[in-house]
Amino acid sequence: MTREGRERLAQALAIVFVAGLSLALREDDFALFLVARVLIVVIACLGLNVQFGYAGVVNFAGATFFGVGGYMAAVLSRGTGVPHLFILVAGGIAAALAGCVLILPVLRTRGHYAALVTIAFALLFRTFLEVNDSLGGPQGLKLPELRIGPWRFNEPIALGRFEASFLLNYVILALFLAALAFALVVRVDRSWIGVQLDAVRLDETSAAAFGIPIARAKITAFTLGNFLAGVAGALSAHMVGFIAPNNYSFGESLILVSILLLGGIGNPWGLPLAAAIVIVLPEQLQVIQEYRYLLYAGLVILILLFRPNGLVPRPLRRLGGA
């Protein structure tokens, strides 16, 4: 079987696995919530993967762009009659536009300085939300249920004898969007754009000497990444039904980055596994209370010590299959 064929099979199996798991857990609200949350975080991390892993653009404000998408969704669904499917896209566009504010400083700085710029932006965003009463201030905003056509997301599912929690709706949509985002990111990687972004990350001087427009490549990657984070944020806001500045702290951004490192930077295949570990593990360890963070931090450190390239290191690109 060709490599492409194997990957298609793996993708199909992953989707079937998540679908099967969700069906098995259909009555368990909390478990379904975690599954949907993992999928949503995977979408956001796929975006960060394009930025960090491909173009080498650091972004420590992942949760901020996630939040921009969430707030956009809240404002639109509360104040307008825009169809909700468009609201998800609008969340992505809003995040991509918010990223434009950062483009100049991001293009002009590198490494630690670029990290600081994005951290500063994350802090500014939170402060802005907290003092802005029309966006709910520190109390945040409530969102109405998600509706796409006749599909009402907050109604429990009842098809004949099949019954399931309303959260299964969100799992289905999140799974669909995650698969779409995954295909997009893999396609970007396996194309001239992927080669171009890698060249920019690895050596800007030689990339420029062969005609690669550095600024445009970085802007493309940054904007695409923020768009994905924004879509994920909009979906998450609808699922939770409530957003507040506290959900979009710098700590949340660090969690997204740690998922990226854990999974294997530059490789989308490691992200679902890493996201599942980072999100589900602390919840499963509730019994040991606050010690769970100690255990979890230890695990992350161990993985990075012994697998510095992540759980699933990035393979060599083989354009045209070989």
Binding site: W192, I193, V195, Q196, D198, A199, L202, D203, T205, S206, A207, F210, G211, I212, T220, L316, R317, R318, L319
Partner: peptide
């Protein structure tokens, strides 16, 4: 100044930039 983690083919294609289509 090769991109060491990339394949030889990818490296060559960096130099072939002007003949390739880079639109999204």
């Amino acid at each position: 100044r090769l991109c060491l983690p990339l394949s030889l083919f990818d490296n060559l294609m960096v130099g072939n930039h002007k003949n390739l289509d880079h639109g999204l």
